[in-house]
């Protein structure tokens, strides 16, 4: 049996924080508390094990190692004291998969109506994967995709289906 065209790996143990605030007004405070620059529209900034993704004009997603979550939330809450903001731990609301390998982009192309090839190196695209909401960005040798916890089995299944051996999109 040939190999799958990409490796699909569930990622456990990530912490995620939803930050809703006026990014113009509170951007600096968020950046300082999160330890990352506030990303431009539809981008994600990464430094080491932390990333900060642009989700909407008033929403960011901080992704970090699970054990750092409480401290990060405290830091954000403190930084945004007096600011109209909403900070929520959404670590348990998410399912995360890494799709890696030379044909990782093909897997995305089979599931998402989004042009992954045109995604900038620091781009973050919110879209759908088949019938479920998802977002993806680039990681080394592929993509990281996040979806919802309740549909983790579905998301894993469609990703593996899209990666079956011999199904790369390049014409043969």
């Amino acid at each position: 049996m040939a190999d799958a065209i990409a490796t699909v790996t569930p990622v456990e143990g990530l912490g995620m924080v939803m930050i809703r605030a006026d990014l113009t007004r509170a951007g600096n405070a968020i950046a300082e508390a999160a330890g990352l620059a506030v990303p431009e529209m539809t981008r994600i900034t990464t430094d080491g094990s932390r990333s900060l993704g642009w989700m909407s004009p008033d929403e960011l997603l901080l992704v970090l190692p699970g054990p750092e979550i409480s401290e990060a939330i405290s830091a954000l809450e403190q930084a945004l004291t007096g600011e109209h903001a909403l900070i929520a731990d959404v670590s348990d609301a998410r399912a995360v998969f890494d799709i890696t390998g030379p044909h990782a982009g093909d897997v995305i192309a089979k599931l998402c109506p989004a042009d992954a090839a045109a995604l900038p190196p620091d781009g973050l695209r919110r879209t759908r994967a088949a019938q479920t909401a998802a977002a993806f960005w680039r990681i080394e040798n592929g993509f990281r995709m996040i979806g919802f916890r309740s549909t983790a089995d579905y998301l894993g299944l469609i990703l593996r289906n899209a990666a079956i051996p011999g199904s790369q999109l390049a014409p043969n």
């Binding site: 529209m41 539809t42 642009w54 909407s56 004009p57 109506p113 695209r125 919110r126 879209t127 759908r128």
Partner: peptide
């Protein structure tokens, strides 16, 4: 207009 994404109808 909020994120600049050219979205298709299904999105």
């Amino acid at each position: 207009p909020y994120c600049g994404v050219q979205a298709e109808e299904t999105e």
